[in-house]
Write a protein that binds this DNA or RNA. Structure first.
Lengths: 331, 331
DNA sequence: AATATTAATGAATAATTATTCAGGAATGTG
DNA sequence: CACATTCCTGAATAATTATTCATTAATATT
């Protein structure tokens, strides 16, 4: 019954299976072992490199665009995942998540403090993230309050929890809504011990991953946290984009909106002081917002799809104004 | 739903599946198709060569031994399949069948007349034989009468039938036992129209595959066609080996035994006139018999395992006598 | 355009492969 | 030597993949 597992034998098994198409069942009969063993032998053959599977290189990243982005926008890091033009957003997000995930692995070490917002692309990213086996403890900070009380898997609190688990670390949640009804209520929350702790810790962030929304399209709009009719007003207020529930103008400075003093989330200034802040984006409708966020130094790195990168690179050069916001006077 | 199947897309799919270990299910979700389609896409990627599976070369044949056999024994063709020493005979036969089968493909063309004996190794050989798709008609001749009336799948009649099917041709059976009780009965069979036809056709054989038995170990002994106590007598008669139920001495000349004139099978002289006659053998107990068959020009080619070939090559050189039969005077 | 023919597709299913689990052999340890 | 531990193993099962089959879409033919 025992079969001394020489490379010779494995090579024969692999040859019969992979080249000649002999099934594991038949292979097992030939070697007088169980099919389970045959499966294991083949796995062993693969491990030992007796079998190699080669796939024509798939060029997942657009290095050219990455280089241009870094040059033109002064980014620290840029990752551009290639997508087909017109590819459904859902697919694009999955691809970004899949191919950008190794970057997370690269940039997260034991002991780090990580700020994390929510959103579908960030979800995919963290979902695909495979921690280095050695990692042993990170601190994940929920970067913004909860968007609605019905928590879905893409919300910051869930995504953060997932990342903390993968990093064998702890998760600091912001147990508060992202928008409060009034400044006073916000202050009540901010003065709460739990939230103060989070805010304190946020100042020690090593890296953060945040999404970038635009008035009409963001996790906030999705969840009807911003009502439809509020959107034109935001535009009037000069809002170009949104990060962690904080709206900013085309220079990347926080805009004066009705939400400004009612927001519970990591502050833009905190992000500005964080060594590495990735904007994680997809879609070709928010190039202005991204440019503004970079200009205002809210983010200094980017994870995006190639369509998005393309739009960004089409903008008037950095010297010029990113301001292309169309002013609406209402709907 | 439709996904224009560019190499690009296939490469992505293949990369995700083969490199990143994404399941077909998930792949299907990513591409918005069914799992069935995912399976088909991957098959397409393999066909198009986007994916290649390489297995370290398994050296199935011992070319060195083949060369030596051809040189030393003056064989036309020799195929030696490597086996591990001590490998169970059953496994050895399967390997011989598997790796020698392409040789059948090579040597069988439409219109040929093929003589075929039975036996386990020949069974494996024919079982593994994959005809060239273009083949369209061969004539398969059962080379020896039936060994017992209980026909098993390894008997010449069954194996012959299988080969005829694969070659899209016809099968000429010998509807008679290999041994008859007397010379007279044999003659009755031989004078039967059906059998005469087979014998006539056998003179036109292009190629034949026959097993080589020894008194104590052959399909005949297995099936108790030769009784246990007859074996010593055969040895006394100078029998060195057996092909198609015909016993021969160490010079490869038919021996005088009680079976000699009671046998219904292709004649040794017919084999001698056949352009290509393969002895199909395995095991290390019949080197003498093989040498004798070659010497007597009953066979001119060989399909064997490396253990068998090794024994054969160990025999005193051709110049010498193959005669190493030990004489027994009884049991 | 109407019809036949071919190709493409996914749901259901069959076939195949990987994994779990429990039992036993081999090996190490007191 | 008794015992614990690890390693192997195959049966059963879970998971995955390939194929069948019926349907629909696309294309060609009249």
């Amino acid at each position: 019954m025992a079969f001394n597992i020489s490379d010779e034998a494995l090579t024969l098994a692999a040859r019969l299976y992979y080249i000649d198409g002999v099934s594991q069942q038949k292979l097992a009969a030939m070697f007088n072992v169980s099919q389970a063993k045959a499966s294991r032998l083949l796995a062993m053959a693969r491990e030992r490199g007796i079998v190699t599977v080669t796939v024509n290189e798939y060029v997942a990243r657009n290095r050219e665009q990455e280089k241009l982005l870094i040059e033109r926008f002064g980014l620290k890091k840029a990752v551009v995942i290639r997508v087909q033009s017109g590819q459904p957003a859902e697919q694009a997000r999955t691809l970004i998540g899949h191919f950008a995930a190794p970057l997370i692995t690269e940039n997260i070490q034991t002991g780090m403090v990580i700020g994390l917002a929510g959103g579908r692309t960030i979800y995919e990213l963290i979902e695909s993230y495979k921690p280095h086996p050695g990692i042993n403890g990170v601190t994940v900070i929920q970067a913004m309050g909860n968007v609605g009380s019905r928590i879905s898997s893409i919300d910051a609190s869930e995504v953060g929890r997932m990342l903390a688990v993968k990093g064998k670390g702890s998760f600091l949640a912001i147990n508060a809504p992202v928008f409060t009804p009034s400044r006073e209520i916000r202050d009540v929350f901010l003065n709460h011990e739990q939230i103060k702790e989070v805010m304190e810790m946020s100042k020690r962030m090593d890296v953060a991953f945040v999404g970038i929304g635009i008035p009409g399209n963001s996790i906030l709009a999705d969840q009807n946290i911003i009502s439809e009719k509020e959107i034109p007003n935001l535009r009037c207020d000069g809002v170009c984009g949104e990060i962690c529930g904080r709206f900013f103008d085309s220079d990347g400075n926080e805009a004066s909106t009705i939400y400004k003093n009612k927001t519970i989330s990591i502050e833009l200034d905190t992000l500005r002081k964080t060594p590495l802040v990735f904007g994680v984006v997809n879609g070709s409708d928010r190039a202005d917002a991204i440019a503004a966020a970079i200009k205002g130094k809210i983010i200094n790195s980017l994870i995006a799809d190639s369509e998005c990168a393309g739009q960004l690179l089409k903008l008037d050069t950095v010297s010029g104004k990113g301001r292309q916001t169309k002013r609406h006077t209402g709907v």
